[in-house]
């Protein structure tokens, strides 16, 4: 575990020494500020539009941070050949990969925390309310979703040839799952065979990331979800996370380093 955490620690250090997150955070603040300065029909009490803009930016920033940070980990290690002195130490490839995953996930979690604190401040400034339980649930679920995306991206970084291809595919896959994934069964029902069955199988195979999207709940002030469902969704997310990580470990163990 110590070895995994050591690798994770380096990933986190890399994230906060690179400019990516700061740029995204500043952009989020600026665009939110701009949206906040808009006055609609001279009504100062309008809050949800601003909350929605801010949360959408947070989702986008977090996804960009998670995918781009993860996608470059293994390729960068191979390209800069830092993987060689690392693997010359008593650490297995599986531990390196788990360390990379833990690092990316924790780094994304830290980035998310900063972004949600900003959101809470923005929201409180407009609505004078702080629904802490809702925020904790939204943050937790968002982080779990990023865990799945990170595991998927890590697998992609081993299987796919270039980080750019991996990043593009992961963005398309993630947004595709979020927007279309929940309705694949409905589309499948209207299709002829065998396309319908294939799409239906895909519907059951993909990780349903929409479970983890609490944006609407936060924007529109829905009450918190029963914790047992949050727990069940977390277990569901971890199952996918484990599948992707296992596949990544198997692929990485077989991968030639040169």
């Amino acid at each position: 575990m110590n070895k995994i955490l050591a690798v994770a620690n380096v990933v986190i250090k890399e994230l906060y020494r690179r400019k990516d997150f700061y740029v995204l955070f500043i952009l989020t603040v600026l665009i939110t500020g701009l949206a906040g300065s808009l006055r609609f029909f001279d009504d100062e009490r309008i809050a949800r539009f601003l909350k929605e803009v801010c949360l959408s930016l947070i989702w986008l920033s977090a996804l960009v941070v998670a995918v781009t940070t993860t996608a470059r980990q293994i390729p960068a290690e191979r390209e800069s050949r830092t993987i060689f002195p690392l693997l010359a130490k008593p650490i297995s490839r599986t531990q390196v990969l788990l360390g990379k995953f833990a690092g990316c996930w924790l780094a994304s979690g830290i980035a998310l925390l900063v972004l949600y604190v900003f959101f809470a401040i923005v929201s409180a400034s407009k609505e004078h309310a702080f629904p802490a339980v809702n925020y904790v649930q939204a943050l937790w679920m968002h982080w779990q979703m990023l865990g799945i995306v990170i595991a998927m991206t890590l697998l992609g970084s081993i299987v796919l040839t270039t980080p750019a291809a991996n990043v593009t595919i992961m963005f398309v896959v993630t947004t595709g799952i979020l927007f279309v994934g929940p309705y694949l069964n409905k589309v499948a029902a209207k299709m002829t065979e065998p396309s319908g069955s294939i799409l239906s199988a895909l519907y059951f195979a993909i990780p349903h990331l929409e479970f983890f999207d609490f944006r609407n709940r936060i924007v529109h002030g829905w009450p918190p979800v029963d914790w047992k469902y949050v727990g069940a969704a977390t277990a569901y997310g971890w199952a996918y996370l484990a599948i992707f990580l296992l596949a990544a470990c198997v692929a990485f163990r077989r991968k030639a380093l040169n």
Binding site: A6, E14, R81, F84, P85, K89
Partner: peptide, 19 residues
């Protein structure tokens, strides 16, 4: 081939943890 964003002592600390 080392992590160039780390300082020398951070690099050594990292490898020490691996050991």
């Amino acid at each position: 081939y080392y992590y160039k964003f780390l300082t020398a002592e951070e690099l050594l600390r990292f490898y020490a943890r691996i050991f």
